[in-house]
Structures are given as C-alpha cells and as structure tokens.
Nucleic acid binder design. Structure first.
Lengths: 220, 220
DNA sequence: TAGATTGTTAATCGATTAACAATC
DNA sequence: TAGATTGTTAATCGATTAACAATC
C-alpha cells in the first residue's frame, strides 16, 4: 500500500517533463509580446503562437501557480516571472564547460544562455594549444585544474563537449569536482551516481525524427 | 466512424516518437559492440548499457523488423543495418545549412553527421565576409543564391542556424527552394506549410529539465 | 446581464510495464 | 531435456483532450 504522501504526489501537482519542455517556449513568446507593449494574453493566443491547443496551455501554466482572469487572460509580466522561477531561469546557474572544440566553443559564444540564467564561469580542455587562452571571452584552463578551480567557484552544472572516448573519464572528474548535474553533448552513454543528474542532448534523435517524418510525408 | 485503415494504423505497428529517439542510442552501442568483435547481444545487455528496461528494448527493436533468437539474442550486424534503414541513416540525407555563425559553423564541422547519413552539401550566410569562403571544408554561399543552387542539388533538409529575427524569413526561402524538412536551431516558433516537416531543437528545454531535476535532487 | 475565458473534473488516448507462453 | 531469452497479450500508468461549471 502506498503512503498518503506518495498517492498525493502521484495524483496531482508534480510538474511533468512535457510541460517543462514547453515552458521555455512560452517564455520566449511572452518576452516578445511584452516588448511589444502588451499586458495580457489568453491561452488561445499563446496556443496559436506555439501551434498547440489552448487546453494544453492552461494546464501547463497552472504549474507555475499563475491565476488568470476570465475574459482577460494572464498578466504577461507576472507570467514571465513565474515561469522563470519555475524553471530556475532567474538567479544564476553557474556552469563549467569541458571540451573547447567546435561545439564547445559555439556554446561558449551562445548569447541565449544569459537569457536562460546560465553562466559558464570557466572552460577546460586537454589541448595545451587551447589552455590559458580565452574563447568568446571565457578562460580555458587545463582539465586537471578542474577540481581545484571548482573548490573555489562551486559550479552547479557541467557541460560535457568532449569526444566519446574521453567522455566518461571527464564526467568522473566533473563529479569528483562536486558538480550536481551533467549536460551531456557527447554521444556516450554515461554512468553517474544517483545523486548526479544527467541530461543527454542527442542530435541524432532529432535528426532521426525529422528523417522519418519527411519520409512519411513524401509517401502518404 | 474511422476507416479500417485508420483503426489498423492506430492499433499497432506505427513507430512511436520515444522509440525513434532511442534508436540512435542503440545504434551507437551496437557499433561499439560490433567493433569489439561481438556477434550477438541480448535485450538485457542492451538495456543495461542504456540504463533502460529489457522490455523496452524488445518492444523498440520489434519496430525495426528484427527477429531475435531465444537463448542467443539479436545479431549485431543485422540489427545495425535494420536500425539504419528504419531511421534513414543509410543512404545520404542531403542538407543545406543557413547561418554560419558560432553554432552553424560548429555543425558544419561536426563529424558525427557522417555516421547519421547526413551530408551538408552547401551553407549560406548573408554576411559578405563569410560568403565565397569555406568553413570546415564546406562552401558558404550568399543566401540569395539558395533557390538557384537548390534547383541543381535538390537538398532534403534545411538546417536553420540564423538569429531569431530572420528565422522565419530564411525558413520561407528554404521552403521556396523545395526543402522537405527544416531542422530549426533558432529559438523562433516557425510557421511552415503542412507538407514541410519541422523539427525544433531547443537547448532551453534541455536546460530547464536539468535545472529542475538538480533542484529536486538537492532538496528531497 | 451576457459572453468570454479560466480552471476543474472526467474521458480518452498512448506509452510503459508485467506476466507468461513460445521457442530454440 | 532444461533453461534462457524472445515476443505477445493484458494491465497499469501517465499525458492529452473534452466537457462544462465557475468567474469576472
């Protein structure tokens, strides 16, 4: 028999992955609406901007704790603030990045992260040619200095952009450095202890979905 | 009343998004097992390598049409071939890329795409400083030449890496050029006609999931 | 008040998991 | 044959959608 706590948590109120995935999208259109001077927006309008259904919007937004006004909609500035709070895009999420290759360098230069509350505070590489330089204004340190520098800066997130062959090894260094979550851009299946969160970013998955969908739409 | 066809399709046999997302992961561990000389693999082994359950593996692999042998498992080379066929990672998926900034350049230099059967055959940018040069060996053309070059090369996929402000406009040029699917790395919500497939790649979504999971695991 | 929009409750749909028979 | 592993059928779980009452 489940505990009351378990049953309550299962029955309602825990935010769900599909909702979390949509929240940054709401955020972007809301910021755009806000900068055009609008104050309120309906679930109908948000739905049409995201090509989803209004009922999905209302269910999703309920998780942020917002209360909409019948006949008016939701306060845009309030909603922005609540979504940012819900997905931790306020404050600063500090991160280390490992692997300053093509992709790693691109992420170091990605301006969008500021808007997502992510601050890459240091980057690491094994290549002596890259270390002790900066890329897009971020300092690159030798990989072996990660634990030492982490003990001073206390990063939350480790962004892993190294080749598959060294991915597990570098992940282990990140974990030993006290990082709480790994954002894995390598295509290696990583093993991490249960208290470390792992988020895999798999371009192959997106490409496979696209490829199958194109094939299906060409031969209906 | 639904047609018989509709009911058959809904009841069984259509490959599902979660399965499609996992197929590239199977592919990678299978390729690694294959290069270590193994011939057969069980659902149990694959499951433990991907940190999922064996029943999920068996259900997923059924969609590729493979037939496993009780007490032995699945033929690794056969399975690789069937997965590649299922997600179109065999042959060549030809692509145009628009926007040779940080991210676009990184994707031009990404070696993993060859393994995914994706061939970026040309790249485009509005910046005259970038056009008529090459990045990672790929030629960069002025954006306005896309329709003309497309009429010769017939690309399937358009990889969109331009800033949000110009994303819709560039997507429209891709569509006018006859592209069948858009892989959208900009954070713009695009409008595309129903016969064009849209796959959004949203880094904000991954970051939001990671961020909420870290918060939850820190305060249990 | 009338009507538009939210938010809740119930129904449907789809994916995962469990149980177990089939098979080599 | 015995036992391991596949693959099928049924059950459970979770997310989306529909219907509609509440509210401003």
């Amino acid at each position: 028999m489940d505990s009351i706590q378990t049953r309550i948590e299962r029955s309602n109120n825990m935010i769900k992955i599909p909702t979390i995935r949509r929240l940054p999208r709401y955020l972007r259109v809301l910021q755009s609406l806000s900068s055009s001077g609008r104050e309120f927006v309906s679930s109908e309008t948000l739905a049409s901007l995201l090509n989803i259904k209004p009922i999905v919007v209302r269910k999703d937004l309920a998780f942020t704790g917002i209360s909409g006004k019948p006949r008016v909609g939701y306060s845009i500035t309030h909603l922005i603030s609540l979504i940012e709070g819900t997905i931790n895009f306020k404050g600063k999420n500090t991160a280390f990045l490992a692997g300053a290759g093509n992709l790693g360098s691109a992420l170091l230069g990605y301006n969008g992260f500021a808007r997502h509350g992510l601050d890459i505070i240091a980057a690491f590489d094994v290549d002596p040619q890259k270390t002790d330089t900066t890329i897009h204004g971020k300092s690159i340190y030798p990989l072996e200095r990660m634990p030492e520098i982490a003990s001073r800066l206390n990063p939350y997130i480790g962004i892993l952009c190294v080749p598959e062959e060294s991915a597990q090894q570098v992940a282990d260094i990140m974990i030993a450095s006290g990082i709480k979550g790994i954002w894995n851009f390598s295509n290696k299946e990583l093993n991490v202890p249960p208290d470390v969160v792992l988020q895999n970013e798999d371009l192959g998955a997106g490409l496979a979905i696209l490829s199958i969908a194109i094939e299906k739409s060409s031969r209906p």
